[in-house]
Amino acid sequence: MEVESLEIKNITKKYITKSDEVMAVDNVSYKFLSGKFYAIMGHSGSGKSTLISILGTLEVPTSGSCIIGKKDISNLSDEKLSKIRNKNIGFIFQNYALDPNLKSYENVILPMYINEKIKKEDRKNKAIELLKYVNLEARIEHYPRELSGGEQQRVAIARALANDPDIILADEPTGNLDEKNEEIIFDILKKISISGRTVIVVSHNNNILKYADVVLYMQNGKLGVKNEG
C-alpha cells in the first residue's frame, strides 16, 4: 500500500548574491509516496540539487514547509534535523563520498554509530548483510581505493540503507559510471523502491526512464510532472 512519506508545500529557495537574487526553487509542492521510484530530471542550474538538498533537510528553504512521516520539520533545530536525517533518509552521491580510511563495512557502519537502536555488537553483521544485498560480499574488508567506481557506489548504497530509512535520495548516482554499472545501480535502487521505500533520484541519464515510476522535471526552479506511473 502506498503511503505518503514526504511532502513539500510551497517550497521556495532564494540565494542573494552581491548583484542578484537567484530563485533556485520557485514555489514547489509535491507529495512523494512510499514504494515509488521518482526521477527528477532537468538541465544544469534548473534547481534539482537544491531541491534534493531541501528534501534531505540539508538546506532550509526560504519559505514553505517540508513534512516527513507526517511531521512538519520546517522549524526544527539542527540537532533534531540531524536525527531525522540519520533515521529517515539515506543519501547517495555522485562521487560516492566514502571515507578513504575506512573499509567497506566500516563505511556502511558510519551512520549506525549515532543510532542508539542498533547495538554495537550488531553493527558489523548488519553491514555485512547490506553489502550482500548489493552483491559485495567479497569486498567487505576492502578500502575504497581497492574498489571500482561501481563497487564504491554500491557500498554507498549499502551505507544509505544502514538505519533502514524510509527515503533514499540520490544525486546523480551514475554520473561517474559506465553503462554496465549504471544498470547495476538503477537495478538496486529499483529493488529498494519495490521493498517499500521512497527512492528519489536526480539524474541527467535518460536510462533512468526505464526504472522510474514517476518522472519529474525541474525547469527554472519549477517542478513539473513529466510522467506519472
Binding site: L58, D78, E79, R85, N95, A97, I114, R159, N163
Partner: peptide, 16 residues
C-alpha cells in the same frame, strides 16, 4: 570537506 559533508548528511550534528 567530502567527509565532513558526508557526516552532516548522514545525521551527525555540527557539535558531533
Amino acid at each position: 570537506h567530502t567527509t565532513l559533508g558526508l557526516l552532516k548528511a548522514i545525521g551527525y550534528t555540527n557539535k558531533d
